[in-house]
Each structure stands twice: as C-alpha cells, then as structure tokens.
Design a protein around this nucleic acid. Sequence first.
DNA 1: CGGCTTTGACCAGCGC
DNA 2: GCGCTGGTCAAAGCCG
Length: 203
Amino acid sequence: MNSTFLETSISQTGNPSFTSPFLYSYMTQDCGYNFQDCDFNNCQDFESSSFLDQLLVDYSPTNNNFNTSLSENPILQESSTNINHLREKSKGGIKKEKMNERHINAVVFRTKTQLEILDDGYKWRKYGKKKVKSNTNLRNYYKCSSGGCKVKKRIERDGHDSSYLITTYEGRHNHESFSIIYNNEIPLSFLNEWTLQAIPNGV
DNA sequence: CGGCTTTGACCAGCGC
DNA sequence: GCGCTGGTCAAAGCCG
C-alpha cells in the first residue's frame, strides 16, 4: 500500500508563529514521533496516535493499490478519488504526458485552524476560486510563484466541519522555501525526503 | 507601476 | 451529443 495517512496536531507544536502543516509535521517529531522511522505500510500507526489531526496522501502513478478506505471524510475521499481517477487516466494512456507533468504526487492536510491561509514558507499566486458541488465552501487555487516551479495547492474549508482547513498540494518544489532564504527557518525539504521513502518507485 | 486578486469565460473529461 | 463539473486562463481592477 502506498497511501500514507499522517495526522498531526497544531497545538502540539506550541509555536503560533508556525502555521504550515509541513512545519507542524516537522515539529511533532519533537513530540516523540519520528517520521523517518515510521512504518508507512501500517496506517494503524497513525490512526492510533493521540495527536492526529491532519491527513497526508502520497500518490505514485505506478502504485495500483491506493487505499481510500481510511477516511470517512467526503472531501478527503474526493481528493483520493481524484487521485485514483488520474491514475486510471495514466494507465489508459489518456493525456499521459499531461498527467506526468502535473500530478507526480498529492499531499492532503486537514488542519483545525481559523486561519484562511496556512503560511507554509512558499510564495503562492492565486489563479482561481471555485464553488464545487461537494463542498458548500469555496475552493481556492494557487500556484507556486517561484519561476519554473509547477507546484499547485488547493485550499478549502471542510464542508462538514468548517473549523478544519483542507489543503491539497500537488507536485514537489524545485527550490527551497522563501522562509529559509529570508528567515533561516526550519527547512521543509524533509517532506520531499520522506515522501520519496513512502513511494518505493520514487517519482 | 508592478504584483496580486477577482471573476467570468473557457476547456476537457465524464456520465447519461 | 449534451449537460454537468472541476480546473485553468486572462482581462480588469485593486493596492501599496
């Protein structure tokens, strides 16, 4: 299985200056959870953790065993469905090139916060806003504004519990975050590192 | 003036 | 073929 469900808690970080789900994940390592050592094939690991509050899904086009059964949340299921849908396209050869360009992997976070935008250290340009059928809240579309970087993210409030913000990242940054460059903050590259570990075929 | 957001239009895929 | 839906584009407007 290649889907990885990872949930962490904002409050566990105890540092309100960090609003990035990536940073929350990073910070929770200080709470006793070492992502480098965790078993990505055992989702019980994550489900049983006491500080669960976010979701992460890794996707590889070569993985045929994507598991969407762990979440009952319709929006998260939709994200998973979309990912599976994209895989089917890839397998079928339909717009395979475009698929490979766009959806190398997807990471979905569900974060309990009143903030509308989580500062993940990268600079984003908003390019769309859409009302989608599956959610009464608007979905916002962003592209990384760094030249040559094709990472995208979608942000929407959970339609069933608006206290949660659902952030979906697609692709990997080909550069470090602006926070590192300008503020010397915690590097976010760890995400790419353990995403690669979680995807045996590494894309 | 440049960078960013807004927003309606457009496009592609899917199901019927 | 047609309508629905989600994703993207791009012109216009806003703001520092």
